[in-house]
Computed example of a mutant assay.
Amino acid sequence: MEKLIDIELKIVSDRRDGLLLALGEVLIANRFNLLRHRRANTADGVVMVLVVQGPEANLLQMEEQLGTHWLVQSLESNPYDPTAPAAIPASVPAAAAAPTAAPSSTAASAQSQAKAVYDQKRVEALLPQIAKDYPRVFGLVLGLERGLEPAQRESTLRYVGARVGAWVYKRDFALGARLPMTGSIRQIALPALRQLLPAELEEEALKTSGSPFANPGPGITAPQCHFLRGFLEGALNEAGNLGMVRVSETSCRATGGECCKFVFHV
Rank of each mutant, 00 (worst) to 15 (best):
D6E: 14
I7K: 00
S13P: 10
S13L: 12
D14W: 11
R15Y: 13
V26G: 11
L27A: 06
N30Y: 13
N30G: 12
L34N: 03
R36P: 02
R38P: 06
A40P: 08
T42A: 07
G45W: 09
G45D: 12
G45A: 05
V49C: 14
V49M: 12
V49Q: 14
L50H: 08
Q53E: 02
L60H: 03
M62V: 09
E63Q: 14
E64G: 11
Q65K: 00
G67Q: 01
G67S: 11
W70P: 09
W70Q: 06
S77I: 08
T83Y: 08
A84S: 11
A84E: 09
A87M: 07
P89K: 11
S91W: 04
A97I: 15
A102Q: 03
T106A: 14
A108K: 13
S112Q: 15
Q113Y: 11
V117S: 02
D119R: 14
E124Y: 10
P128E: 09
Q129A: 09
A131Y: 09
P135W: 00
V137L: 05
V141H: 07
A151F: 06
Q152S: 03
Q152P: 09
Q152D: 07
E154D: 04
V160F: 06
G161W: 02
V168S: 05
Y169C: 00
D172S: 14
A174N: 14
A177I: 09
L179M: 12
P180V: 01
M181H: 08
T182K: 15
S184C: 03
P191V: 09
P191T: 06
A192D: 02
Q195P: 09
L196Q: 04
L196Y: 08
P198I: 04
P198A: 07
A199I: 03
A199W: 01
E200V: 11
E202M: 13
L206H: 03
T208P: 05
S211W: 10
F213L: 00
N215T: 15
I220K: 06
P223W: 05
F227S: 03
R229D: 02
F231Q: 10
G234W: 01
A235Q: 05
E238H: 11
V245K: 04
R246Q: 12
V247K: 02
E249W: 09
E249Q: 12
S251N: 08
R253A: 10
G256S: 06
F262V: 02
V266Q: 13
